[in-house]
């Protein structure tokens, strides 16, 4: 694994190169995509991007945890967690040309 990190800036650069909008508008659209996904997850709990994957919100019930330092029992409150299920296409892409 190469260990490089891709950020919003590189996504905006790719949009700039591929679509030909200005750099600032490309950056705004990358942010708009992530914001639409976030809002939908808060509102509806699922976002399905074909050939990429599905984001879904899972509800976790309350359970008893323990402070590892003191051993004291503390309740872990019910909460929502986000999981990503990669599509078959993305899974296959990561293992392409192997085995």
């Amino acid at each position: 694994m190469a260990g490089k990190t891709v950020t919003r800036a590189q996504l905006a650069e790719a949009v700039y190169q591929q679509v030909g909008l200005s750099r600032s508008e490309s950056a705004e659209l990358v942010d708009a995509i992530l914001e639409e996904i976030s809002e939908s997850l808060v509102r509806e709990g699922t976002v399905k991007i074909s050939s990429f994957g599905t984001f879904l919100v899972r509800h976790k019930g309350q359970r008893i945890g323990r402070n590892p330092k003191t051993g004291e029992e503390v309740p872990i409150l019910p909460r929502r967690v986000l999981v990503f299920r990669p599509s078959q296409a993305l899974r296959a892409r990561l293992n392409r040309g192997r085995g």
């Binding site: 694994m1 190469a2 260990g3 490089k4 891709v6 950020t7 993305l90 990561l94 392409r96």
Partner: peptide, 10 residues
């Protein structure tokens, strides 16, 4: 990026 083994941090 993931295919190259890179991380994507948003």
């Amino acid at each position: 990026a993931l295919e190259r083994g890179d991380r994507v941090e948003l």
